[in-house]
Structure formats: structure tokens, C-alpha cells
Design a protein around this nucleic acid. Structure first.
Length: 449
RNA sequence: GGAGAGGUGGCCGAGUCCGGUUGAAGGCGCUCCCCUGCUAAGGGAGUAAGGGUUAACAGCUCUUCGUGGGUUCAAAUCCCACCCUCUCCGCCA
């Protein structure tokens, strides 16, 4: 949420920044209006309270010296002031709620260097990386999807051959849970697990591994900005008012909720492998084939709390972590600079990593590396005490996916497909798969005889 | 799920029965100063956050003792609801 002081003192600047992402500024105008009444009310309420406190002290003295009649007349006066205070308080509570509601829906201001644009189509491609396959790896070449960089046998979508091989079981997943759920089997399941371990181990040098709860309170979802605006995208366990997390970002961002950290401890880096649950309500019928879009998946999230000064280099670091994982897996990918119009609600700047799946012939978003400024920290109330000077500041938060299982899984099996329904295992994953070099047709282990 | 005990500042811990100079004793920690050959010890001062006003992190003022309501002239203290922690019982991977 945006800072009310900033809105108060520079309404035009804030409005201009929001306009870059296509925000109409109506909510902002309303906030400014309500805020000025709120300030006036607070002033009047405090004055009433001050008088009450004063009168109470008089009452005490009078009663101690047994001047009951005088005390009672002052009590009467104070009681009336109490009613005035009440009225102000009720109105202030209303205003607070209204302003809060509005602010929850006002998106973050984009970073100054975030490219201006309206839709996805306006996102500049920062760079494209093509993995070395028998040759040298190439950067920044125009990579048309139909360019014959891939063999014919790599041009088969995973939902065809992986299902045939028995390592991906979409039909039974649908039987159990419905459309857009996936089930991995045999070496396919091991590959999914290997990706998670690979993602964690790759970042364990700097990032503390966390295994958080994946059901959280409503309040936690609000504080990370996933509610109330995206209520339709979240699953809800109504009976207990618990919400399955759509991303590990939710528990990790709330990890230090309501805490005041020491500047010396920043930046703090965390990572977590969690299940992610998404209703994908707005996406019915889109990208529904195979693993392109599923309701539940595993993801390794990396996240950092930082000071404002540390945020920019950390953003680069997180991007390099996300990018490095895909590069190490030997996949083709590109980095997208998300323009103002396509930016997530809470984000000030986002880079997407998109991996190329040759069989599906699609670029698949596998990581969004975002810098949120103090927008999230303001909601979650995460501050730090500067080592010099008094007071506290809100931290900056940054996060991204280190490894998102299904889409990387899809890109891997398509990219590494060999003639004759076999899949080579990427070098970096072999240690996590018992040294397995090639995945063949899944033959379930028979019961021991 | 049942029964009970608790939640006070950076930490520990008084105060709660019997409401009022208690934003909160005392201690620890931390910061600064003094003293002291070094060390140890000692002496003094300071040490919450947020809101409003303001040029001001000067002053004034309001709020905050788990959270939210209520009673009262006045609430850490009385009443109600909720959250969390701990102990015992039950259940359970």
C-alpha cells in the first residue's frame, strides 16, 4: 500500500506515476478527500480527549478532598465531552476503513526506469539465451520459434509423448481432482522432486531454507496483497477461514510481519519449496493443455528483505539466481522487462524469465522477479531500525521463483527428448536422480516375487 | 475436542484481588560521559513505537500493557468476545 504522507504531499507525482500503468486515479482522489476530513476529525478528537484527561485529574483531586458536588459537575462536563469524542471516533473508524479499502486497491507506483506500456505486447525482451547444443551458446540473437534449432523429435508437445511414456498422468489427475491438475509418475515424479532439490541446493549459499505452512490466515493473504483484489484466484477453506497459498511469497513475506529488524541484519534472504494453489478463474480455456497452467504445483521461491539502498543490486542478484537455474538446466530462455501496464499490482519493477518449450512451441513464464519497494512491507508492517539515527523505516521486499516445477518439467522433457521416446536427464539433475541419465517408458515396479 | 494457567518495553520482571501523579518499579542489555597503570570493578546520564501539529527525529498533544469491544469523570487494573502460548486429558502421522 502506498504511503498516505506521500499521497498527501505529492498527489500529482503519485497520480502521474500511477497513470503510467493505466490507473485512472479515481481511488487516489477519493483517498485525498477522505484523508483531509480524517485529519480534521483526529485533531478535534484529540482536543476532546486532552480535556477529558485534564478533567479526570481534577475529579481525582476533588474526590480526595471530599468535594463531591464539584467533582460531580465536572464529571458531567467530562461525560459530554466523552460523547463528542465517541462521535469523532466512529467517524474516524469509518474513514480509516474506507481509506484502507481504497488504498488496498491502489497499485504500487512503478519504478522510474520501468518501461511504459499498456499490455503484455509492450514488454521489451531484454535478452534471449540459446543453450549450447553441440555448438556454442548464443546470446541475443533473434530466435524465431520456427527457426530449425530443434530436431523434429523435440517438436512433440509433452502432453502427447510424456503421457504416452507414462511419466505424466493427466487423465487420472483429472479423475481425482478435475481439470488442470497434474500427476507425475515414476521417473517423471522423480524429475519433479529433483527440480525442487536442485532449486534449493543451488541457492543454499546465501538463502536460508524455510519450510513454512501452506495454509494461511485471511489476514496474511491481505498483507501480501493477494486479497481482497484477487479473491477469485485463491482457494478458500471457508470452515476455518484458511487459505491455501498461491505462492511461497505469501508466508515468506509475512515471516517478519510486525517485526522491527536491525539494519545490520539486512539484507535477509529466504527460500522455500512450497505447493502453490491457484484457481486460475480468469484463465478458463486458456493454456489448458498439459502442464501449461495447473491448479497446484511445486515451486522454490527466493525472497529478500532489504534497505532501499540494497534493493537494486539485490534485484539483479535474484534475477541472476532465477536465470542461472534455467541456464544450468540447459534450456533456452529469454528475459522480459515487464512494462508499466502489465506490472503486478504490488510490484514496482518486474523481470520475467520465460523458458522455451520446443514441443509446445511456446515461451513459458517460469519466474517473475519483482521489487516491491516498501509497498508490501507497509501492509505487513515489517520495519528496520537504522544503525544511525532514530525511528524506523519500512524494509523493501523482493522475490522471484528459483524453480517452478511443471513448466520447467515440460520444457526439459521437450528439449531433452531423444528419438524413440527417451528423455536425456540434464547433467545438473542427475545427482538428484540416482545418477539416472535417460528416462525411458515408465514401467511400474512389480510387486516383489 | 475437554480442563486449567498465562500474554506488561530490546530482554527478564513488579503492578491486576482493593481503577486515579504508572508509558509503566526493579534488574539485565545497549549508548554516552566520569573515574581508574591494564583488566576487573565503580559513579552519573540516557535508552519504545505510531498518529496530529511543526521547518524540525525542538516543543506541545493523542494513542498503545495480546487484539477488538464495553463500563467509568478516569482502565495495564473491572466486564465480554476473540487470538496466541504453556500444562494435563483425549485423538493422531
Amino acid at each position: 500500500m502506498l504511503e498516505i504522507h506521500k499521497i498527501r504531499s505529492h498527489p500529482d507525482k503519485v497520480a502521474a506515476a500511477l497513470a503510467r500503468r493505466g490507473d485512472d486515479g479515481l481511488a487516489l482522489g477519493e483517498v485525498i478527500k477522505l484523508d483531509s476530513e480524517r485529519l480534521q476529525r483526529i485533531h478535534d478528537r484529540d482536543a476532546a480527549r486532552q480535556k477529558i484527561n485534564e478533567l479526570s485529574r481534577q475529579v481525582r483531586k476533588l474526590r480526595q478532598s471530599n468535594r463531591v458536588a464539584e467533582a460531580e459537575s465536572i464529571q458531567l462536563e467530562s461525560r459530554q465531552l466523552g460523547q463528542v469524542e465517541q462521535l469523532h471516533n466512529h467517524r474516524i473508524a469509518e474513514l480509516d476503513e474506507a481509506i484502507h479499502d481504497l488504498l488496498l486497491h491502489v497499485p504500487n507506483t512503478p519504478a522510474p526506469d520501468c518501461p511504459t506500456g499498456q499490455t503484455e505486447a509492450d514488454n521489451p525482451v531484454l535478452r534471449t539465451h540459446r543453450a549450447a547444443r553441440g555448438g556454442t551458446s548464443r546470446e541475443n540473437q533473434s530466435l524465431a520459434c520456427e527457426e530449425p534449432a530443434f530436431r523434429e523429435y523435440q517438436r512433440v508437445p509433452h502432453w502427447e509423448f510424456a503421457v504416452e511414456m507414462g511419466i505424466l498422468d493427466l487423465e487420472r489427475a483429472a479423475k481425482i481432482s478435475g481439470a488442470m491438475f497434474a500427476m507425475f509418475r515414476g521417473a517423471g515424479a522423480v524429475l519433479a522432486r529433483a527440480l525442487v532439490s536442485f532449486g534449493l541446493d543451488r541457492n543454499s549459499d546465501l538463502y536460508e531454507e524455510v519450510l513454512p505452512p501452506s495454509l494461511v490466515r485471511r489476514d496474511t493473504m491481505v498483507r501480501t496483497g493477494h486479497l481482497p483484489k484477487f479473491v477469485d484466484d485463491a482457494y478458500e477453506i471457508a470452515r476455518d477461514d484458511l487459505w491455501p497459498i498461491p505462492t511461497g511469497e505469501v508466508p515468506l513475506t509475512s515471516l517478519c510481519e510486525d517485526e522491527i529488524l536491525a539494519e545490520e541484519d539486512l539484507p535477509m534472504r529466504f527460500m522455500a519449496a512450497t505447493p502453490c494453489y491457484r484457481r486460475e478463474a480468469g484463465s478458463a480455456g486458456r493454456d489448458t493443455r498439459g502442464l501449461l497452467r495447473v491448479h497446484e504445483f511445486q515451486k522454490v521461491e527466493i525472497l529478500a528483505y532489504a534497505t532501499a539502498e540494497q534493493a537494486a543490486p539485490l534485484h539483479d542478484e535474484l534475477l541472476e539466481r532465477a536465470e542461472g537455474a534455467v541456464r544450468d538446466l540447459g534450456l533456452d530462455y529469454r528475459i522480459i522487462d515487464i512494462c508499466t501496464g502489465d506490472l503486478g499490482n504490488s510490484s514496482a519493477r518486474t523481470f520475467d524469465v520465460e523458458v522455451y518449450a520446443p514441443g509446445a512451441d511456446r515461451w513459458l513464464e517460469c519466474s517473475s522477479v519483482s521489487w516491491f519497494g516498501d509497498y508490501q512491507a507497509r501492509r505487513a508492517n515489517i520495519r528496520y531500525r537504522p544503525s544511525q539515527g532514530r525511528g524506523t523505516h519500512f524494509v523493501h521486499t523482493l522475490n522471484g521463483s528459483a524453480v517452478a516445477v511443471p513448466r520447467l518439467w515440460a520444457a526439459i522433457v521437450e528439449t531433452y527428448r531423444q528419438p524413440g521416446n527417451e528423455i536425456a536427464v540434464p547433467e545438473v539433475l542427475r545427482p538428484y536422480m540416482g545418477g539416472l541419465k535417460v528416462i525411458s517408458v515408465n514401467v511400474p515396479p512389480s510387486s516383489a516375487t
